[in-house]
């Protein structure tokens, strides 16, 4: 299984990166491949490639502010979560997604 995600928050300096870290940690703990693109104040970092997106089983997008270049995820399974929810509950979110995908 592979998860890709895009995170962003209003100030673009803290939640964006903390949620990315939390998700990476949670996914790795479960042996799931993960790549997280951050759209912070500095711009897009760790950009998702076409292959990343093609290989992904699910795309997690944060819903606090508008994200850039979301057309890339047309036809993918998308889940939207709040950025602070992702910081706090990354473990549960990953677990739940795993169940939803394997169902």
């Amino acid at each position: 299984m592979k998860i890709v995600a895009v995170t962003a928050c209003p100030s673009g300096v803290a939640h964006t990166y903390m949620s990315a870290e939390a998700l990476e940690r949670a996914a790795k703990a479960r042996g799931i491949e993960v790549k997280v693109e951050t759209q912070g104040q500095i711009g897009i970092e760790n950009r998702l490639s076409v292959e990343d997106i093609k290989d992904a089983d699910v795309v997690i997008l944060t819903k606090d502010i508008g994200l850039k270049e979301t057309d890339r995820f047309k036809e993918k399974k998308i889940v939207k979560v709040g950025v602070s929810e992702l910081v706090k509950k990354a473990d549960q979110i990953v677990k739940k997604l795993e169940e939803m995908i394997n169902k």
Binding site: A29, V58, K77, I78, V79, K80, V81, K89, D91, Q92, I93, K95, K96, L97, E99, M100
Partner: peptide, 15 residues
């Protein structure tokens, strides 16, 4: 330890 049950409260859905 990960609480295995909390995940059920999350309201996730595919869009």
């Amino acid at each position: 330890e990960i609480d295995e049950n909390i995940g059920d409260e999350l309201d996730l859905k595919f869009e």
